[in-house]
Every structure is written in C-alpha cells, then in structure tokens.
Design a protein around this nucleic acid. Structure first.
Lengths: 141, 141
DNA sequence: GTCCGTGCAAAGCGTTTGCACTGTC
DNA sequence: GACAGTGCAAACGCTTTGCACGGAC
C-alpha cells in the first residue's frame, strides 16, 4: 500500500524504522479501529513475540508526534489509538462501549466562531458524543 | 445562597448531608473553577482537617450522580470537577494549561444531525478545544 | 565505538477498595 | 444497635522510567 510506504518513510526521516515500530503501525493500519495499548501489544506479538509493552507505548508516542496516529481518551478507560488521520469525531455507546467515527462537516467554523468570541486561538478540537449506537438502540432502548 | 440550600436538600433527599460532603460542595461552589481531587482536598481540609482523600473521591461520585457537579477529563491529567451545571464546553490552553468555559449555542442541533445520520441516539456530548488562550496568545504566539 | 532502540522490572500516578471505627438515627 | 459514612493504608490499572543489553550506522 502506498500510504503505508509513505508512513514508513516519514518514520525513517527522523527515526529508525525498526521491526517493532513497523509492527505497531501495521497493526493499527490493518485494524482501522480503536485499540488500546494492550490490544496492540497482543496483536503485534503475533508478529514479533519478544515485543514488550513499554515499546508499544514509546512507539505510540512517536507515531503520535509524527502525526501518524491519533489518541482517544475516555474517562475510566485506557487510551485508544487509531491510524485514521482525517479530522473526525467519536460516538461512544454507553451500553456496548463501542467507539465509532463520524465526520462533522460544519464544526470547524462553529468552533472558530465560538473561540473567536472569547479571544481563544483554537489549534485542535474533539467532539465526543455518548449515547446509544444503532444496534443497542434496537436491541432495547 | 438559595442554590446552595437547594443542593444541600438534594443531597439530603437520598443521602446524609455530612460535614465532609457539605465542605466539598462548598469548595466547588466557592471556586467556580476546575479543581482536581487533590486541590479540593487541600481546600476542604482548611475547614475539616481530618478529611481524607478517599472521601473526596467518594463524595465527588455522589455529587456527580446527583447531577451537582461535572467532571472534565483531559489526557495525562487528573480529572477536574466543577459545580457549574449548565451545558457548556471547554477551552484548554496548551501553554498555561488553564481551562476555561464557553457556551456553544447551536452545537446541540449540529450534534443531533450528525448522530441521526448514522442512527446514533446522543445522550450527552462534550466539545474540547485546545489552543492558546487570549493571554498566552498576546504574551507570545 | 557510539548511540538509538529495546526488554524487563520497578516505579509512578490518579483512583478505588477493604476494613475497622465513628456518629447518627 | 443497625447502618451509612469515614479515615487510613493497601491495592489497583494504566503508563512511564531506569538500566543494562543489542544492533545499526
């Protein structure tokens, strides 16, 4: 995949592209979901059994710094990571705890307006919505 | 203050209004800001020196359950609590780490639309914006 | 040979829990 | 006297760190 190669190149431009780092990135890009450090560790170990959890955390920091992964943090839960790069937001189902992605087309402007009103210069923002996902809603309100 | 009395009444309706609980609520209502458990502990101890940190956490859970306080959670930081009850959102300055409040008038509708688009039933949502506050922006971008 | 990256284990931090005690009804 | 509420200390879960080793330049 071209994207994967580009990402590998980005890592190499500033750091060594080790087997460990490649494995973590591969896991995140393959899954497309929202994995926590331990889940990433499990999966990456299938490929590189000696891999330690500390390396996962260090690699995730690095990938975040390079802008290759994003982190989502919800209360009372481990941080979750995703390779998805485009601007998007999260819907958390309070029943099945599934996290899904949505785009919010006009939110940028709205945030810009809100921030401008109080002299704040926004650099990034996250919308986190909790409620019931389609499935849980049908299963039983 | 009437509001304080009403809140005390709400606690009493389901739990005992102990000196510890009153102290925590008083601290939060007096400050109006965003304090973490340890800060609340410090301040409440001025009033009740024997107070333990575990009680602070237990009380905050209870006040949250009663809807008297809200919690804000940012990555790599202790949870912060505030007595403010109306719907609002947060601006976090990445330079001075100050957290400030804003209202987002038309956000409800937008969130409703976004969620409806994917069959999600929103129950609550939070917008968290990071960037530079007015002061830090002037001090030096 | 230097230095970056790693694995392991230990430490760190905010938070929660177990338990015996206390005060209120 | 029952029981909700408390303080203390220990345990918890996620994450970070110290340190000695290993491998790439």
């Amino acid at each position: 995949m071209d994207a994967a190669k580009a990402d590998a190149g980005l890592i190499q431009s500033r750091y060594r592209l080790t087997r460990q780092r490649a494995a973590v990135l591969r896991v995140l890009q393959a899954d497309g979901g929202h994995l926590d450090a331990e889940e990433i560790h499990e999966r990456a170990k299938e490929e590189l059994s000696s891999l330690g959890l500390a390396t996962i955390y260090r690699t995730l920091d690095l990938l975040r710094e390079l802008g290759l992964v994003q982190m989502v943090q919800y209360p009372n839960a481990a941080a979750r990571y995703e390779a998805r790069l485009d601007k998007h937001h999260h819907l958390l189902c309070t029943r099945c705890h599934e996290l899904s992605d949505v785009e919010a087309p006009h939110l940028d402007e709205l945030v810009g307006q809100i921030a401008a009103g109080v002299g704040f210069e926004p650099r990034d923002f996250k919308l986190q919505v909790s409620g019931l996902c389609r499935r849980c809603r049908n299963d039983r309100g």
